[in-house]
C-alpha cells in the first residue's frame, strides 16, 4: 500500500499522537465523564488507521501487525471474561459482581471493577476495528499479485 504526500505525512505526525492520547483519556475517565470503553477503543483504532493510510506499509509488516492485533483482541476479551468470573469466587457468588472497594464518588480510582472493564473492553474494540481494516488492506494487496 502506497503512502500519501509530504503534507499529509507531516500533519499526521503532529495529530496521531494527540488522537491516541485522547482515546486513552476517554477510556480511563469512562466512569466519570461521557464515553467509555467502546468510544475510546474506536478512537484508538482511528489513530492507527490514520497512520497506516498516510504512511503506507509493505505486505510483510501488515501481516505482522494483523497477527499482533488478533492476539490482543482475544486476550482482552478473555480477560473481561475472567474478571467477570472472579465475582463467582468471592462473596455472594454472582457473575459480574462488583467486589472491589468503591472509593469516593468522582475520583479517578473509584467505582471498583468498572474502570478495569472499561480498559479491557477498550483494548478489545480497538484491536477488532484495526483487525477488520488490516484484513481489508491485506485482501487488496493479495488480489494484485
Amino acid at each position: 500500500m502506497k503512502g500519501m504526500t509530504t503534507i499529509v505525512k507531516k500533519t499526521t505526525q503532529l495529530i496521531a499522537g494527540m488522537v491516541f492520547m485522547y482515546g486513552i483519556y476517554v477510556i480511563i475517565h469512562g466512569h466519570l465523564t461521557p464515553g467509555g470503553g467502546f468510544a475510546g477503543g474506536v478512537i484508538l483504532a482511528g489513530s492507527f488507521i490514520l497512520l497506516i493510510l498516510a504512511f503506507g506499509s509493505d505486505f510483510v509488516k501488515l501481516m505482522k501487525e494483523e497477527t499482533g492485533s488478533t492476539l490482543y483482541e482475544n486476550l482482552a476479551i478473555l480477560t473481561v471474561l475472567l474478571l467477570a468470573l472472579s465475582g463467582l469466587l468471592l462473596g455472594t457468588r454472582i457473575f459480574f459482581m462488583n467486589w472491589m472497594p468503591k472509593g469516593t464518588l468522582g475520583q479517578l480510582i473509584s467505582a471498583g471493577m468498572l474502570p478495569l472493564y472499561n480498559i479491557f473492553v477498550g483494548i478489545e474494540v480497538a484491536a477488532s476495528i484495526l483487525t477488520i481494516f488490516l484484513a481489508l488492506v491485506i485482501f487488496k494487496e493479495e488480489m494484485k499479485e
Binding site: 466512569h31 461521557p34 467509555g36 468503591k102 468522582g106 472493564y117 473492553v121
Partner: peptide, 21 residues
C-alpha cells in the same frame, strides 16, 4: 450501588453486564 459518577457506565458494566459481554 456502583460508585461511578457516569450513570451510563454504571448501568452498562454493572446492572447490564451480560449485555455488554
Amino acid at each position: 450501588k456502583t460508585g461511578s459518577a457516569n450513570l451510563v457506565t454504571g448501568v452498562v458494566f454493572d446492572f447490564r453486564g451480560y449485555d455488554t459481554l
